[in-house]
């Protein structure tokens, strides 16, 4: 229980470092900001959109935040709450008809008071990068290859995931997997990629 309290007491900058180390820490932001963000979106849409849909928007926003953090070019200039409100707002503006939004939010009346849980910044326009080639045969084959790699057990799937999505460096991966040095880790990663390439090739042939 003490750990639970300690984690919830972390400030945003401390949390940012924790999230970089372990993706599960995004769960703290999720827990901390969810109800205010959903409340913010409810207000923005005057209850015209279901909570289920709003939750989906909030989850996407959390992923946007995570991807921004691990990409190493993220500087937190507002609180996580303000950032997530802003990302959610931008998503709603892009996807919904304007009639469903209340006037305040259409007219970009920023409220950057970080203490206010309803604050947002109209300058924040981060979105989730679309994966547009997901219907291509090679993409599907690689996806299936990854599933097989995961099912096969071992380290390959986790190694590739940590490198390509969670942007872990060779040194970090060396530590995670207990390899002797980063050159060995690099070699291991190359082998895993080759293994996946073969699996994907076999998928393409079938």
């Amino acid at each position: 229980m003490a750990d639970k309290i300690n984690l919830l007491e972390l400030n945003d900058q401390e949390l940012l470092i924790k999230i970089k180390q372990n993706s599960d820490h995004i769960g703290i932001v999720y827990k901390r900001c969810k109800s205010n963000c959903i409340g913010f979106m409810r207000k923005m849409t005057s209850g015209r959109i279901s909570d289920y849909e709003l939750e989906d928007v909030f989850q996407d926003a959390s992923i946007i935040l995570y991807e921004k953090i691990v990409n190493d070019n993220f500087i937190l200039t507002a609180s996580f709450q303000t950032y997530l409100n802003s990302v959610c707002r931008f998503q709603l503006l892009n996807t919904l008809e304007k009639s469903k939004l209340t006037t305040d939010f259409q007219e970009n009346k920023d409220s950057d008071d970080d203490e206010n849980p309803m604050s947002y910044l109209s300058t924040i326009t981060d979105t989730l990068d679309e994966i547009d080639n997901s219907n291509e045969p090679q993409f599907i084959a690689i996806e299936k290859g990854l599933e097989k790699l995961k099912a096969a057990g071992g380290h390959c799937y986790e190694l590739l995931t940590l490198f390509w999505y969670h942007k872990k460096s060779m040194n970090e991966l060396t530590e995670v997997f207990g390899y002797s040095n980063s050159d060995n880790t690099k070699q291991q990663k190359a082998r895993c990629q080759k293994r996946l390439e073969k699996m994907a090739f076999n998928e393409l042939k079938n």
């Binding site: 992923i63 989730l128 990068d129 994966i131 080639n133 997901s134 291509e136 090679q138 993409f139 690689i142 996806e143 990854l146 590739l160 995931t161 390509w164 999505y165 969670h166 990629q193 996946l196």
Partner: peptide, 11 residues
């Protein structure tokens, strides 16, 4: 494709 496939699965 590898990067995108992993991104899709991880998201």
């Amino acid at each position: 494709n590898l990067k995108n496939a992993i991104t899709k699965i991880e998201r």
